[in-house]
């Protein structure tokens, strides 16, 4: 028996099938959590925002239409919830990113292992919020440019531009200054 699509599961849940929600939640819990955590940097805040996002998704289930891709719809709700959080309070993630970024290993080390990942994580936190979000939607949620544009409420060109800037900066962090100089 084939797995039901996200859209089918969401519709089934909206009709009252709890099992459908469990399946849907199992599929998206990790990526959605990381999408939020990598944006805010703080696990406590991330927990709150993650839970709040799901509560909004649950509340909005009746408004969901199957012709809209579920992932884009879900991340749109999460995006709005996180954006509300940033509007209410200045993010502390930049401070944490600064503390992580002070560790400045050489380029050889930066390309391998956990140190690379840690530097990359710090670098992502230092990105401007819009670029960081576009990158996370690509890396964590696996969305394409159209979906990223839809989630963030901008044109596709804008989304593409944000993603390009983000990639360029991260490549600089990962691979040294020569890539940045070339571009």
């Amino acid at each position: 028996m084939r797995d039901r699509s996200d859209e089918e599961l969401m519709q089934a849940y909206a009709k009252g099938e709890m099992k459908a929600f469990d399946d849907l939640y199992g599929r998206h819990r990790g990526p959605l959590y990381r999408y939020i955590l990598r944006q805010v940097g703080d696990p406590v805040t991330a927990n709150d925002l993650y839970q709040g996002s799901w509560e909004k998704i649950i509340k909005a289930r009746a408004r969901y239409r199957a012709n809209a891709p579920f992932r884009a719809w879900m991340y749109r709700i999460a995006h709005n919830h996180v954006a509300d959080h940033f509007r209410r309070s200045r993010p502390t993630s930049e401070l944490q990113a600064d503390s992580l970024a002070t560790d400045n290993p050489g380029p050889e080390q930066a390309l391998i292992g956990e140190q690379t990942a840690a530097r990359l994580q710090a670098a992502v936190l230092m990105l401007p919020g819009e670029q960081r979000e576009a990158l996370l939607l690509r890396l964590e949620a696996g969305l394409d440019l159209d979906a990223i544009a839809e989630v963030t409420g901008v044109k596709q060109e804008t989304a593409k531009s944000r993603l390009r800037y983000a990639v360029r900066k991260l490549k600089f962090v990962l691979g040294g200054a020569e890539v940045e100089q070339e571009s």
Binding site: Q51, A117, L170
Partner: peptide, 26 residues
């Protein structure tokens, strides 16, 4: 290249308590 490096990050997941809370709300 960034995606490859990104996969080196430990796969962080939501705490069990949050999972239960979300499922209960649903």
């Amino acid at each position: 290249a960034i995606r490859h490096a990104w996969q080196g990050l430990q796969p962080v997941e939501p705490p069990d308590l949050i999972d239960q809370s979300v499922r209960t709300a649903a």
